[in-house]
Design a protein around this nucleic acid. Structure first.
Length: 817
RNA sequence: GCCGGAGUGGCGGAACGGUAGACGCGGGGGACUUAAAAUCCCCUGGAGUGCAAACUCCGUGAGGGUUCAAGUCCCUCCUCCGGCACCA
């Protein structure tokens, strides 16, 4: 009898072994084979079993690739800048770096205990100057090309704390800390011009065949391209103002315009408000200004169309009619021109506003017979539209735009929902924006040779208002690179999404110190072949990374135009919350966290790995249960116990039928495991291994020693990516001197699977009546004859007899009875 | 509201358009044990017929359709989950 299965004893040994053998190391100077990557984590500290899911999945695939003899780049690093570190520093009176570094160590240890292999030679942390200096370098190149610029943007402002708040710090419209109502305030901020890449970001999605459709749709919606027309409307009696532009996707409905609406922030508001309307307009503008964006766009409560008349009128250029100009909070300054033509007959929002304000409604599209709705937004022949009457939507839009262009008052126009990327953060723990402001020369970029602009050390994290950087005298006081005179250093730092937008390029060869990345190797190793991470990054991170890749592509630094070939999003792990009893994402506050340490102490890391991968399809949410863990452990116990069967076999010769069963079971398992892991379905791959394990258990005792041993060894190879420690240990017990990682991946013989005895399933009129065992070589006619004969007792005349080969489902055909 | 995705046993979940429910959990029965745990064996979608070997019918959210054949494809609807949310 073998020793009992004791993960505590074997796991640390193998972790040590893989590390000293440097099993994950790859030399990227060599030709590319495969580049796989997990989204690098924010080092927040302790990891729970839910976090393990994508790392374990990635490691499983990585180990399979290694066994298949592939050369795989599989690096890991740390998305190490960010607000939580700063908050922790305030709480402990320490520096964000201390907390971050300690967390990185904790997480590295966790990866090791999970048995996860990375090429640690390539580790990077975005908070290190040698990394973030290249954020600064890139920022400068973008600045030179007009891709970075300074502009005003509203921020959440707490007037009592005198500080900018991130959206997450605004709770129910108030400041997280003091509860004061948060207002919008314009600040000078830095932007990256992602909007000029909108079309390319959109078009690129069509070529990402191996991205989840869901993510692509989310990105498309986020970019929000819409085609239409922009034209100018004159203010009646105020030709001096030059009018205002409006954007519409439905120029065909312009004859139905009965009013126009400006956003309350529109620059013309002051000029067009008539004196008698002024008090009401100003009160309205002030009310909107006070509301945060969140509140303004909120649909909580009744959707009330709030607005106010300015006292002015504008001219509808299509029919020369005068229409009143309103302000309304449903028109956003940040989209289009910040002004709209309102056509209540064809736009539900305009309809509601018109009803609320008592404005007229003119239909310009004939609604279908029996239309009972309000605004009709569908297609139909144009009516009340002079020269557009009778035309349908597409043609009417074309004519309307042609007309605008002929008259020189408007043009075809594409708008995007996407806004430029605001990268300024009024925080310490991020990449300093490499710019100074000189009284004489204005905003001047820090010269390349002075990079990196380092984060200063003389900073106290007290939680006092504002950005800690502003209080660092050594940091703020700078010299103007142009004149050498005194200058003020920019204290904004960069959004941490900047860090994660190009780290995959740095990984290829993180040890170059004079360049952002090793362009020659990047040319060979990019794009990333497989990128694994959470769906929560479907939009921002993945869009920014695509954007920066395209920018670098345009700079001539990266041949690839898209960074990630295949994207895989793993689902969350949930557990019953101790307090609410509901299924929730694991979190301390919910009291439903399963800590890997205690789990591993009891069952071992291999059990956690098996269970995590067996729970269900990895892209779906899955519920953690203790019974499931126990089942996974039982499976490993059984695999462990099978070694006795091999030992007891001695040199026995076996029973032919049992031999055959084992042989076929082995090949079938290899095929299934390989196919299933290849399509990221470790759950069914494990099921196939369990089946093989059960087959050894059942047929092993009657098979030859050699067959049992071969089957068992195949099982260990297949299982290695899932449960690496226990399989290594068993492999060694069988007398092998090398690691399973070097043992190679088993292959299977397709002809063996195909040449199995065939079961013919016979259906009569759609009902399965009987099955016949037959030889594999049977031709169709013979099979038909057999089937007709077998179906005899169910035949009643003109019946349809159907024959299906099972279980391999190679052929099916129909025989007329 | 718009756009996606999903509804299969007691549960997690399997099923190139081809024997629905693989594999596991849970449950029931049995063996071993003084006993329990562990382990092993058998059963486990529902309803029915049969002494039995077996057999029949129903069954993948609801209703239609295509097909020799539908969990899978098409149409309508219901429910749940996710994303966006006044984007003109």
């Amino acid at each position: 009898m073998a020793l009992p299965y004791d993960p505590q004893k074997i796991e640390p040994h193998w972790q040590e072994f893989w590390e000293t053998e440097r099993c994950a190391r790859v030399d990227t100077a060599e030709a590319k084979d495969l580049y796989m990557l997990m989204m690098f984590p924010y080092p927040s500290g302790d990891l729970h079993v839910g976090h393990g899911r994508n790392y374990i999945l990635g490691d499983c695939l990585f180990r399979m690739f290694l066994m298949q003899g592939r050369r795989v780049l599989n690096p890991m690093g740390w998305d190490a800048f960010g607000l939580p570190a700063e908050n922790a520093a305030i709480k402990r009176g320490s520096h964000p770096r201390e907390w971050t570094v300690a967390n990185i160590e904790r997480m590295k240890r966790q990866f090791r205990v999970w048995g996860i292999l990375y090429d640690w030679d390539k580790e990077i942390a975005s908070c290190e100057p040698e990394y973030y200096r290249w954020n600064q370098w890139l920022f400068k190149r973008m600045l030179e090309r007009g891709l970075a610029y300074r502009g005003k943007a509203p921020v959440n402002w707490c007037s009592s704390c005198h500080t900018v708040l991130a959206n997450e710090q605004v709770v129910a419209g108030g400041c997280e800390r003091c509860g004061t109502v948060v207002v919008q305030r314009d600040l000078e901020q830095w932007f990256l011009r992602i909007t000029s890449y909108a079309d390319r970001l959109l078009d690129g999605l069509d070529r990402l065949e191996h991205w989840p459709e869901k993510v692509k749709i989310m990105q498309r919606n986020w970019i929000g391209r819409s085609e239409g027309a922009e034209f100018t409307m004159e203010i009646e009696g105020r030709a001096d103002l030059g009018g205002f532009g409006v954007f519409t996707t439905r120029p065909d409905t312009a004859f139905g315009m009965t009013f126009a609406v400006l956003s309350p922030e529109h620059p013309l508001v002051g000029a067009i408000t008539t004196p008698e309307r002024r008090p009401e307009v100003e009160a309205f503008v002030e009310r909107v200004r006070r509301a945060t964006e969140v509140e303004r766009l909120s649909t909580e409560g009744p959707i009330e169309k709030r607005g106010v008349f300015t006292g002015s009128h504008a001219v509808n250029p299509f029919n020369g009619r005068s229409v009143p100009v309103y302000l309304a909070d449903y028109v956003l300054m940040s989209y289009g021109t910040g002004a709209i033509m309102a056509v209540p007959g064809q736009d539900q929002r305009d309809w509601e506003f018109a009803k609320a304000q008592g404005l007229p409604i003119v239909r310009t599209v004939q609604p279908p017979e029996g239309w009972k709705g309000e605004a009709y937004e569908g297609d139909g022949p144009a009516i009340h539209s002079e020269w557009l009457d009778g035309l349908h939507q597409a043609e009417a839009i074309r004519r309307a735009i042609d007309w605008l262009e002929e008259k020189g008052i408007g043009r075809r126009k594409v708008n995007y929902r996407l806004r430029d990327w605001l990268i300024s953060r009024q925080r310490y723990w991020g990449t300093p924006i490499p710019v100074v402001t000189c009284e004489r020369h204005g905003t001047v970029a820090v010269p390349d040779e002075q990079l990196p602009v380092l984060l200063p050390a003389d900073v106290q994290f007290t939680g006092a208002e504002g950005n800690p950087l502003e209080r660092s005298v050594t940091f703020v006081a700078a010299r103007c690179p142009t004149c050498g005179g005194p200058a003020r250093r920019e204290t904004d730092t960069m959004d941490t999404f900047m860090d994660s937008s190009w780290y995959f390029l740095r990984f290829v060869n993180p040890h170059v110190h004079d360049r952002m990345f090793d362009a020659e190797r990047v040319a060979r190793w990019l794009p990333v072949d497989l990128y694994i991470g959470g769906i929560e990054h479907a939009i921002l991170h993945l869009l920014y990374a695509r954007f920066i890749t395209k920018v670098l592509h345009d700079f001539g630094l990266v041949p690839a135009d898209e960074p990630f070939q295949v994207l895989f999003n793993q689902g969350m792990i949930t557990a019953r919350s101790a307090s609410s009893g509901k299924l929730e994402k694991m979190s301390k506050s919910k009291g439903n966290v399963v800590a890997p340490d205690s789990l591993i102490a009891r069952y071992g890391a291999d059990t956690e790995r098996v269970y995590t991968l067996f729970m269900g399809p990895p892209e779906k949410e899955a519920e953690w249960t203790d019974e499931g863990v126990a089942g996974a452990h039982r499976f490993l116990q059984r695999v462990w116990g099978l070694q006795d069967l091999v030992a007891e076999a001695g040199d026995r010769t076996g029973d032919a039928a049992a031999e055959r069963e084992l042989l076929v079971a082995t090949h079938r398992a290899v095929k299934r495991v390989q196919d299933d892991l290849g399509r990221y379905q470790p759950n069914t791959a494990i099921a196939a291994m369990m089946t093989l394990s059960n087959a050894i258990h059942e047929h092993g005792p009657r098979s030859s020693a050699q067959r049992v041993r071969q089957t068992y060894e195949t099982l260990l190879r297949l299982l290695h990516p899932i449960a690496p420690h226990v399989t290594e240990e068993l492999w060694r017990t069988l007398g092998h001197g090398t690691s399973l990682l070097k043992a190679g991946w088993p292959s299977y013989d397709p002809s063996l699977l195909a040449s199995q005895r065939v079961t013919l399933a016979v259906q009569v009129n759609g009902k399965l009546r009987t099955t016949i065992e037959s030889d594999p070589g049977l031709d169709a006619d013979a099979a038909a004859a057999l089937a007709r004969e077998a179906a005899g007792r169910w035949l009643e005349g003109k019946d349809i007899v159907k024959v299906i080969h099972v279980p391999d489902r190679l052929v099916s055909f129909v025989v007329r009875g």
